[in-house]
Design a protein around this nucleic acid. Sequence first.
DNA 1: TCGATATTTCCATAGTTATCGAATCATCGG
DNA 2: CCGATGATTCGATAACTATGGAAATATCGA
Lengths: 112, 112
Amino acid sequence: MHAEVVIRALSALAQEHRLAAFRLLVQAGEEGIAAGVLAEKLEVPASSMSFHLAQLANAGLVSQRRESRSIIYSADYSAMNGLMDYLTENCCGGIPCGEDAACNTEAKRRTA
Amino acid sequence: MHAEVVIRALSALAQEHRLAAFRLLVQAGEEGIAAGVLAEKLEVPASSMSFHLAQLANAGLVSQRRESRSIIYSADYSAMNGLMDYLTENCCGGIPCGEDAACNTEAKRRTA
DNA sequence: TCGATATTTCCATAGTTATCGAATCATCGG
DNA sequence: CCGATGATTCGATAACTATGGAAATATCGA
């Protein structure tokens, strides 16, 4: 993953509504969530939501599919993992991920 | 870690020069790097570098100390781990960190 | 104290991003 | 085909971010 792509992903997530939308999409899993539903849940006008979803899509963090009149968005886990990979490798250098750092703490907490 | 803080950290990293600076600081470890050295390495005017470092500091990702005439910046690993924590917990939900996801892949690669 | 060095603050400016109503496009049911 | 529904695109505007030179601040050595 190049720095340029990483920056686009970070920029995409660095916004209140987009971070919130992405969290919901991650929770929703494969099934995804329609644009209108996201707009309603986040109390954002449809055109604004569309703008934000386009940013997330442009960053490769979400994919979309049409289902009748709705457009369903879903999180792209591999893109997110690519981002985590980059951050772990380049920005967590001093405290590698296998000891007491974030990722592992989470992993343990999760399986506990 | 609240969403607000997370967004500030993501915004801070979502910029070419700041991401590059932070990577260097992570590599440098406790010792840190002086503002002027960073400016020179990244080929950015001193005042611009100062601006970017202020953003990183504001996000809590770096700390600074004066050492004679220089101001030495160093990465705050715990803040970065806090960010990783949040992302793992909120944005990697579907594929928890203990299986094939980024963090663990990294951890294994690192200790191998 | 003076001059040099390291950095930040100030300021103007250019560029980018967010917002949201209105217009447009796509799909469906009848 | 028509009206309704779900979504995007357009366009204007406001807000924020990045840039970099000049001035100000802090520290040092002599």
